[in-house]
Nucleic acid binder design. Structure first.
Lengths: 146, 146
DNA sequence: GCATTAATTGAGACTTTGTCTCAATTATAT
DNA sequence: ATATAATTGAGACAAAGTCTCAATTAATGC
């Protein structure tokens, strides 16, 4: 996985620097939902001089290469950066009351993806399917609280 | 449409203030993809004293009532706030190169929504389906540019 | 291994976004 | 009209993200 990314970076003529490698390492081991701030913190554990600017630059670079996709950047409470290295798509439910996030596996976009891709000439690299509403618990509390 | 929202606000015991009405008016006429900053600017054209805090507070309120959903808050280049008043779902393709956004109408989540809702006890109020990749034009340019 | 060179970096200033507090205002019920 | 509690604007604050520039460093060719 990391190897693939490294290859694609080099193919595209980018250098394999230590700060960059630190970010990649964090992304590989950190799961799909890290915020830039978390990536910075974890990255500095590997390469202490790592700067915020470099984290953003690396994320942007990977993004341009289609290896990664930031979702909900800037959002604070919930997880923020979402890595598309692991899967092609991301699926979850978000509670608009407590902010909790429940992932699910079912993917129903395959056919649609092909249709859209063809119709619009779009090269699709990934997707995000997100439902929002009230989770089981908040559904009950809702009326009592307010 | 605006009437519905006004009703739901009052039902829930919230006041119909001028700043709030200004925001609602902007949301009603501004389409589905306004950023909080844009909402503030347009709102101030209607009610000059409108403050940023009030915009955020109103968006949060509407969000809690399930009338609205902010997507990609904090993101700068592309549109940010996404209003769920108009439709139940939002569907678009995002180009990771130029940032353009192409909406589409097809919705394939109905059945899945019912399944998840039942399985997890989640009360689903809306959804976002977003594909990302390269648009027709960027797909061509990509290799030439770099 | 060593020098060259262009890409990359860190630091930190800066901008923008979002949150919070508090005194002043205002919509609503009476 | 008055009382009262919700709502507001201002502005301080915090966090997120961008940008510049001089210093560093990875890759290339020797």
């Amino acid at each position: 996985m990391l190897e693939t990314i490294v290859e694609r970076l080099q193919e595209a003529g980018h250098r394999l620097t230590k700060p960059r490698m630190a970010v990649l390492q964090v992304l590989e081991t950190g799961g799909e939902h890290l915020s830039p701030a978390e990536i910075l913190a974890r990255g500095q554990a590997i390469y202490p001089a790592l700067s915020r600017a470099t984290v953003y630059r690396t994320l942007e670079l990977l993004s341009e290469l289609g290896l990664l996709r930031l979702i909900h950047p800037g959002e604070q409470r919930s997880s923020v950066a979402c890595v598309a290295m692991h899967h092609h798509g991301h699926h979850h439910l978000l509670c608009i009351h407590c902010g909790c996030m429940i992932p699910f596996e079912e993917c129903v976009v395959g056919e649609l993806e092909a249709t859209l891709s063809q119709r619009l000439g779009f090269e699709i690299k990934g997707h995000l399917l997100e439902f929002y509403g009230l989770c089981k618990e908040c559904r009950g509390h809702q009326k009592v609280e307010q």
